[in-house]
Amino acid sequence: MDHLVPLAEAWDSGAGTWTAKEREAYTNDLGDAPSFIAVSAKTNRSKGDKDVAEWLLPFEGDRCTYVSDWVATKMRWQLTVDPAE
């Protein structure tokens, strides 16, 4: 399992201003299924800390859901979305 929106991306998108408690809540968020994504180790390495402008799932049929879940996660946590995303 991996964070859909990686921790470094969340940090760059506003989590850097959060309290330690808010960052911990994000890190351990199990309240919304799209916050995490099941990926293979190989896919996880290729994804790294990239955002949706830099990396998408290999299977095109899953990309729409991935991007939709990405935006929903950012909105849920009030993180910024840059123009490239």
Rank of each mutant, 00 (worst) to 15 (best):
P6C: 06
A8F: 15
P58K: 00
A25V: 08
E24S: 10
T65S: 08
N28H: 07
P34I: 10
T65E: 11
L4D: 00
E60K: 06
S68A: 10
W11H: 09
L30R: 13
W77F: 14
Y26V: 08
L30S: 06
P58W: 00
P6T: 05
E54R: 11
Y66L: 01
V67S: 04
A15L: 13
T17H: 15
D49P: 14
K74N: 09
G14R: 14
R23M: 08
D12Q: 14
M1E: 08
K74Y: 05
E54Y: 06
A25P: 03
G48A: 13
K50W: 02
T17R: 12
D29Q: 03
L56R: 01
A15K: 07
A15G: 13
E54S: 14
F36E: 02
E54I: 08
A38L: 10
T65Q: 05
W77N: 09
N28A: 02
Q78D: 11
D29H: 04
I37F: 04
A72D: 09
R45C: 09
T27S: 12
V52W: 00
W55I: 05
K21A: 15
S46A: 13
T27L: 12
A15E: 13
N28E: 10
L7W: 09
K74C: 07
T65D: 06
V52L: 00
P6I: 02
V67M: 04
S35Q: 05
W55T: 02
A20Y: 06
L7K: 02
L4F: 03
S13G: 12
R63D: 02
E9L: 09
G48M: 01
R63M: 03
D2R: 01
L56D: 00
W11A: 11
F59K: 10
P34G: 03
D12F: 11
E60A: 02
W18A: 08
E24P: 10
A84Y: 06
G16V: 11
A72C: 13
F36C: 10
M75V: 14
L57R: 01
T19C: 04
M75Q: 15
S35N: 14
A20G: 07
D82F: 09
L79N: 15
R23F: 04
K74E: 14
L30Q: 12
G48C: 04
D29T: 07
R23V: 13
E9I: 05
L7G: 01
L57E: 01
A10K: 00
W18Y: 11
S68V: 08
C64T: 13
T19E: 02
C64W: 04
D29R: 05
Y26A: 03
D51H: 14
T65L: 11
D82M: 08
D2N: 03
T17P: 01
E24M: 07
C64I: 12
T73K: 13
G16N: 15
D82G: 01
V71W: 03
T17A: 12
P83I: 09
A41M: 11
W77D: 06
P83N: 08
G31H: 08
R45Y: 09
A25M: 11
A33N: 14
F59P: 02
W70I: 04
D49L: 12
D29K: 07
